[in-house]
């Protein structure tokens, strides 16, 4: 199977459009290998979907791209992930810097138990958007800038209109879909280049899902987007490229139209037509 993957042509046409390049990636949890020799090129300003049956390693793969797997004590990563040509698993890499450039939205919306405003402002404050000393004279200006960025992020996440009059309310007062858009706004606030979505709609109803999908379509103009999804219709609707993963191996990676109309692998076809999974 490994041969098949490496022999597979990358659907990304030009080298200069590649934002992330995953090279021979292997991941183990303790002694179990969960990702096997994956190679994948992610194109700039496109939506790349990762699909596959439960337990195939989709979430593990996406969480590797901003080094969230570092938190898991037994995880071991081998291989390279190049972000704009630089290996984020290299020795001289600042993890915090990687996470600032690669934002993430999680499966279950997880706003902080703070106000709507504070949720969006959190990343900005952490990353020194407000300098520690700027309290007195420049304080007002900085606060204004912070407000501007929060507003812009909420607008980008298509949430501004719904919350502009209650920024001080608890984030928990929002509906599930609004909370997830708040999490998107929070991720966008620090102006990442890549946004990872790990099954962002799995806990949402169809209306809220539609809103998030529409939003992702808009966001790709500014960001490079990778989305893990269980929902094949969703992958077909919103992605430009689609990677099919099974048991930790990349079975097929191609333009989404191609995957859903004329997959080259039998197993891909079986999966997308619902014969298993």
């Amino acid at each position: 199977m490994v041969d098949k993957v490496t022999s597979h042509q990358s659907p990304v046409t030009s080298k200069k459009d590649v934002r992330i390049s995953i090279r021979n990636l292997n991941i183990w949890y303790a002694n179990t290998q969960v990702i096997k020799n994956v190679r994948l090129d992610i194109e700039k300003n496109r939506v790349t979907a990762i699909i596959g049956p439960s337990g195939c390693g989709k979430s593990t793969l996406i969480r590797t791209i901003n080094r969230m797997n570092d938190i898991i004590p037994d995880a071991k990563v081998k291989g390279e992930i190049l972000l704009d040509g630089k290996n984020i698993y290299g020795d001289d890499i600042d993890v915090v810097e990687v996470r600032k450039r690669v934002g993430m939205v999680f499966q279950k919306s997880n706003p902080f138990p703070k106000s709507i405003f504070e949720n969006v402002a959190y990343g900005l404050k952490i990353n020194g958007f407000i300098s520690a000393g700027g309290r007195s004279a420049s304080g007002g200006k900085k606060k204004g800038q912070l407000m501007e960025r929060v507003e812009q992020s909420l607008k980008d996440a298509a949430l501004w209109k719904e919350v502009k009059d209650r920024l001080g309310d608890s984030a928990f007062d929002l509906s599930g879909g609004q909370q997830q858009r708040l999490c998107i706004a929070r991720a966008l606030a620090i102006e990442p280049e890549v946004v990872l979505f790990d099954e962002p709609c799995s806990a949402l109803d169809p209306t809220a899902t539609a809103k998030i999908e529409e939003l992702i379509q808009k966001l790709k103009k500014k960001y490079t987007i990778i989305i893990v999804t269980h929902n094949m219709q969703q992958a077909a609707r919103i992605s430009d490229f689609c990677a099919f993963l099974m048991l930790g191996e990349l079975i097929e990676f191609d333009k989404t139209d191609k995957i859903f109309t004329a997959p080259s692998e039998k197993v891909t076809e079986d999966y997308i037509t619902g014969r298993f999974g």
């Binding site: 996470r99 993430m104 999680f106």
Partner: peptide, 21 residues
Amino acid sequence: NSFKEASFALGANRWETTVKV
């Protein structure tokens, strides 16, 4: 744990996450 994950994903370190989240 999801609060901590969200904080880490925004580029916060362990100390910032503990103190601020």
